[in-house]
Design a protein around this nucleic acid. Structure first.
Length: 293
DNA sequence: AGGTTGACCTGGACGC
DNA sequence: TGCGTCCAGGTCAACC
């Protein structure tokens, strides 16, 4: 379900609530699971680790894990290692837990007494007594651990960090419809169906438009539109459609700002023309036939 | 090689 | 009330 603003909201909420806490034990449900790493590897990687920080990379939630007793200085283990090198690795987490929510995934922090929701696939018991739970009815979500040095990198560039020049270069010469290109996580990471439609509306570009035919100036407008839409959505806590809620169970409010998404047949807020819905790249796409060219 | 299409799942909304 | 159909915010593998 979640795109960048929703994942950002959830990651911030988790960072606030569980950073500094330690995972004591992990339960992983049986059945066909939404896992990428084997269950045993996930469990042993998480157990007895301190959650140093929770952040977002594209649509992934990243938990930076440290040793139980805090990886402060040269506290490694061998006294023989007399602080060999300043190791940039000290800044790196010893391991990372990666959560992708897919379409319907949720992460919640609960009291142990709270009822266990249907489709709960993982429960991490924390030293504070609370539990971190992963729930996902449709099982499109993915859980994995990243152990290599360097940190997890899903590829693609962060839409909120990329400059206009680099942004334009990402799309140069592509034959695919612009909507498909925006959804391609290897180019831009974090934009999904709702925010792609909303960005294209604000930039005045139709979703089917061939990417290569878009002028540099229009790409500049699209760059600005993507950043504007994502920033506004983050401020409002994301878009709550169907069942999206943040860590505290609160809904976001950006859906109230949607100008085209989910508004098929309704009047364009700018020109009153009926909003159209077409399928592009297998995804429903909404646009104003008059405002978007 | 790059682009497009289903398949993967469950559940909610809607029409009859 | 119940059944069938369609739709869903995301990725991949498997095709053209």
């Amino acid at each position: 379900m979640p795109e960048l603003p929703e994942v950002e909201t959830i990651a911030r909420g988790l960072d606030k609530r569980v950073s500094g806490d330690t995972v004591e034990s992990v339960w992983i449900g049986s059945r066909k699971q939404p896992l990428k790493s084997p269950a045993g590897v996930i469990a042993t990687t998480l157990e007895n680790k301190r959650i140093v920080r929770v952040h977002r990379a594209g649509k992934h939630i990243v938990f930076d894990l440290g040793g139980k007793s805090e990886p402060s200085h040269a506290s490694s283990r061998g006294p023989s290692t007399i602080k060999k090198k300043p190791q940039s690795g000290l800044l790196q987490p010893s391991a990372q837990w990666i959560v992708h929510l897919g379409m319907t995934g949720r992460m919640v922090v609960s009291e142990p007494s709270a009822e266990i929701a249907k489709h709960t696939h993982l429960i991490a018991k924390l030293a504070s007594g609370r539990e971190l739970r992963f729930i996902d009815p449709r099982m499109f979500g993915k859980l994995s651990v990243h152990l290599q040095a360097g940190g997890f990198d899903p590829g693609g560039v962060e839409p909120l960090e990329v400059g206009a020049e680099r942004f334009a270069a990402l799309f140069r010469g592509r034959k695919t419809p612009i909507k498909s290109a925006l959804l391609n996580q290897k180019l831009l990471r974090g934009v999904g169906n709702i925010y792609a439609d909303e960005s294209l509306f604000r930039a005045g570009i139709r979703p089917r438009r061939r990417t290569a035919s878009i002028t540099r100036q229009q790409l500049g407008a699209l760059h600005a539109a993507v950043q504007e839409v994502l920033r506004e959505a983050i401020v409002l806590g994301g878009s709550s459609i169907s069942d999206y809620v943040d860590v505290d169970g609160a809904e976001g409010f950006f859906q109230l700002q949607h100008r085209v998404y989910g508004r098929e047949g309704e009047p364009c807020l700018v020109c009153r023309t009926a909003i159209r819905r077409v399928v592009v790249a297998g995804r429903s796409s909404h646009y104003c036939p008059k405002c978007q060219k």
